[in-house]
Write a protein that binds this DNA or RNA. Sequence first.
DNA 1: TATGATATAAATGAATACATTATTTATTTA
DNA 2: TAAATAAATAATGTATTCATTTATATCATA
Lengths: 242, 242
Amino acid sequence: MSDSRTLPELNPDQKSDDRITDILRDMIANGRFEESDKLTESGLSRMLGLSRTPVRAALKVLAAEGVLSKLPGRGYHLRKFSEHDRSHALAVRAILEGLAAERLATIGLDDQNRQRLEKSLTMTETVVRRGILDDESVEAFAVANMIFHRTIMSASGNPFILDCISRLAVLPNAQLGAVHPLAVAYPSMERLAVSHQQHIIITQAIEKKEAGRAFAMMREHIGYSDEYHQLFGGNQLAAPPH
Amino acid sequence: MSDSRTLPELNPDQKSDDRITDILRDMIANGRFEESDKLTESGLSRMLGLSRTPVRAALKVLAAEGVLSKLPGRGYHLRKFSEHDRSHALAVRAILEGLAAERLATIGLDDQNRQRLEKSLTMTETVVRRGILDDESVEAFAVANMIFHRTIMSASGNPFILDCISRLAVLPNAQLGAVHPLAVAYPSMERLAVSHQQHIIITQAIEKKEAGRAFAMMREHIGYSDEYHQLFGGNQLAAPPH
DNA sequence: TATGATATAAATGAATACATTATTTATTTA
DNA sequence: TAAATAAATAATGTATTCATTTATATCATA
């Protein structure tokens, strides 16, 4: 049997393969459909100028992903998500990333991943030091943040954490993206600084093999963005998290 | 927007709909394919006496579920899982059910769900009191156990917990089922008694709104089955857990 | 007017046919 | 013999077609 690292990727590079599925998923994520819209094979194939066959497969896949749900005999409709649902999704993400941090603290960091975390910290520190909240800073912070979180999840050695989170990611955000397509929350400078500090703390906990602390701090770190979201009404998940 | 309780089910009753997908998933779960088998649309449609169209859709869905992975231009193969992977899956399940228990302790039990938990506890107590480990007892315990766990997850109000776990459930077990199709571990009487006691403790923690304790005890409860598994080599997940 | 049966339309499940792409095998050439 | 190229085979992507199921509209009847 294979080790975790040899687990086949869930979504390997697909050349032209399921592009219709991706197109539809993007359309949904970008709010091109109303909540009340009923998506049928025939209707969508007409709309996209394709035959029903590829559309049919795409709809089935999206239903399996949980993006759509099926009305037997009447097509599909968007799965709808409330603010509560979004908050629930974040709670799951928080505890799963907490698990990743906990486990990584237990098994220890290898050099490659330590370097990745340090690189991320350097990047976020640069942004915070600079102290100017322009597009460049926000973009740089977002990239560094993504590196931080993905490094911890993949270095944890538990492939199911990423599995679950990447599935979770499409769901409540599609709907939110539909509601506020352009209202991606711009974080405040203060928030970036706090996030950066939390990244440092989490990294230290992992380095010192303080698993419980790593778990708690990561969970807090992600939950924090939820409070922020509720206070300021932005969408922290749609922009690469934190 | 909808409340969590109105979230459309992920897998509503499907009459004859995606039965080919289900058939294939079952075949995979029952070990009808070798790790080395390459599953192609044409090959499977010949084998099943169907056209490629439904088989094709089923393969795409199973790939989206993570049961299969795609070799571009060469069909699909089983996603392989090691004992490590199985243990990782259990860690995810443990922490997610812990989250469910924690949240349920926070929001409190309503009467209906309290009754369900009490019913489950009565059933497991009966089995433990009886003290005889025959098929009837094992079956009764498994049912009660499933009621216990599903009640907590659904009463938690977080639909994503069940979402993640139900997806997780198909993955590493398919492979294990293939290896030991008949070797479903029969729990010992001692183990059933411990499980029952843990159920009582978890229920008490929820009733007393001791969220942290509910989380920790549930996580321990599920993790315990992993230790058991490692000690005795059974497959606790294939049989409805614990 | 309300209700139920029937007819019509719409949508889906599945098969076949065809085009395109990728992979394997065979063959040629240096 | 090794590398490169070309033919073949296999696999997939898409379209078209037909049959069946499901929903909706219409009409007759109470």
